[in-house]
Amino acid sequence: MTNKNQVQDQVAKAMSSLDGIQPATANPHLYTRIKAKLEQEKSSWGWLAAFLSRPIVAVALVATVILINILTITANRSVPEETTDQLVSLAQDYSFQPSNILENGFNQP
């Protein structure tokens, strides 16, 4: 038998090696393990994920985040002017002008 024929023979044998294969059987305690896994999921973070993934909860959360963002943006728009005004009047009241400190030579030894 030539080498080529030998190889072909081995290939054919390998290709037919799964003929008549018997199905593998699962663990007889599979259901108990599945139940344990389900219980574990329930007791840990599973319930939180399930709660958050509910459409109503998810939409409500997104709406809350958007509302907080809108409130923050609108609040920030008015705050800088007031704050600036307050700072200017405070500086004027106490004659607190950084340039004056340098001009008056307080930094000199």
Binding site: P23, A24, A26, L30, Y31, I34, L38
Partner: peptide, 30 residues
């Protein structure tokens, strides 16, 4: 009970590892 052997056999044939096949079988039913 009706399907565990067939699902395990399928998973085992594909992943070719008993531990992974068992894990997959559990996950399939979950």
């Amino acid at each position: 009970e009706d399907w565990k052997d067939r699902i395990y056999n399928t998973a085992l044939g594909l992943v070719q590892q008993a531990e992974d096949a068992e894990e997959i079988t559990q996950d399939v039913f979950i």
